[in-house]
């Protein structure tokens, strides 16, 4: 039953407008960010600096910026799972298709579990497409400006691991959105609450924890610990020392992201199993 439902969800995913629009939008935004950052940095350099320290989008550091900054859960890596999880769950409350599955004898936990599992593949595909397109844009500006970048500087095994790290960092956001979707059953409510938490909520919570002397605990809040995990993507450049100064170990950050995912999904299932559904 679970496998059937997962396959159905995948089939629905690739026919969904929300997925296609998210994929295209992410790609376009990354090209804009890579090119915009690069040319702003160039202009700033020609004028003798002055607009702050813009990161280099030249290969291979451009790919690190892409996977640690642009695709971090605090930025595009957070927006993508919020949009996809909202589309996957809340729209189906509205269409009545969720109620249809349930009235066909599919257990509630199977329905929500299959939806959550089915989110992983579109997230991964969006991530791969974003990396290829953003990486391509970085390679292009490198080629136009400083000549072809050296592929030898990149540790490709770490590049694959970076994709998995970034994907893992997206999971707590997706699970939190599913929880908010179950609680609010409203597209606007889910999007608003999830984006509010991403942009403001966790910063406020982190600030409060720091004020009460629990700044270490603040590092383990869902978005923060996931963002910390993506910082380990620096290791994809051979010889990079950046990862040594990260305050939370990679295994701990990985476990933290998975734990938050499990907590949010568990709460979503608990609530969903007890929810009265209107028809």
């Amino acid at each position: 039953m679970f496998a059937n439902l997962w396959a159905i969800e995948q089939r629905k995913t690739f026919k969904r407008k929300a997925f296609v629009i998210t994929l295209a939008g992410t790609a376009a935004l990354l090209v804009f960010l890579v090119l915009g950052t690069h040319f702003s940095a160039q202009v700033a350099a020609q004028q003798g600096g002055g607009i702050g320290e813009l990161p280099s989008m030249l290969w291979p550091s451009g790919i690190v910026v892409l996977l640690t900054d642009f695709l971090s859960p605090g930025f595009i890596g957070g927006i993508v799972p919020v949009i996809l999880a909202t589309a996957f769950l809340v729209e189906e409350y509205r269409w009545g298709t969720l109620q249809l599955w349930l009235s066909r004898g599919v257990p509630r936990s199977t329905v929500l579990g299959a939806k959550a599992a089915a989110l992983v593949l579109p997230l991964l595909l969006t991530l791969i497409a974003a990396t290829l397109i953003g990486g391509g844009a970085s390679a292009l500006v490198t080629h136009l400006g400083a000549g072809p970048g050296s592929a030898e500087q990149v540790n490709f095994a770490q590049l694959v691991l970076s994709l998995l790290r970034t994907l893992t960092a997206m999971l707590p956001v997706a699970a939190l959105t599913l929880l908010l979707g179950v609680l609010t059953r409203s597209t606007a409510g889910t999007l608003g609450a999830a984006m509010g938490y991403l942009l403001l909520g966790e910063q406020l919570l982190g600030g409060l924890l720091s004020l009460t002397g629990l700044s270490t605990a603040a590092l383990y809040l869902p978005i923060t610990v996931s963002t910390v995990l993506t910082l380990y993507n620096h290791t994809l450049i051979k010889g990079s020392e950046a990862a040594k100064s990260i305050p939370v170990g990679q295994a701990a950050a990985f476990a933290g992201a998975l734990l938050w995912t499990a907590v949010f999904l568990g709460l979503a299932m608990w609530r969903f199993n007890r929810q009265d559904l209107s028809i």
Partner: peptide
């Protein structure tokens, strides 16, 4: 027990962006 039940309650439940055939194929997967 609901596996032996077919229902039509309230507004018919379907994915609006899909064709009639696609909607039925999605459900047939179950």
């Amino acid at each position: 027990a609901l596996r032996q039940v077919g229902s039509l309650v309230g507004a018919p439940a379907m994915i609006p962006g899909f064709t009639a055939l696609q909607n039925l194929h999605v459900l047939a997967g179950l």
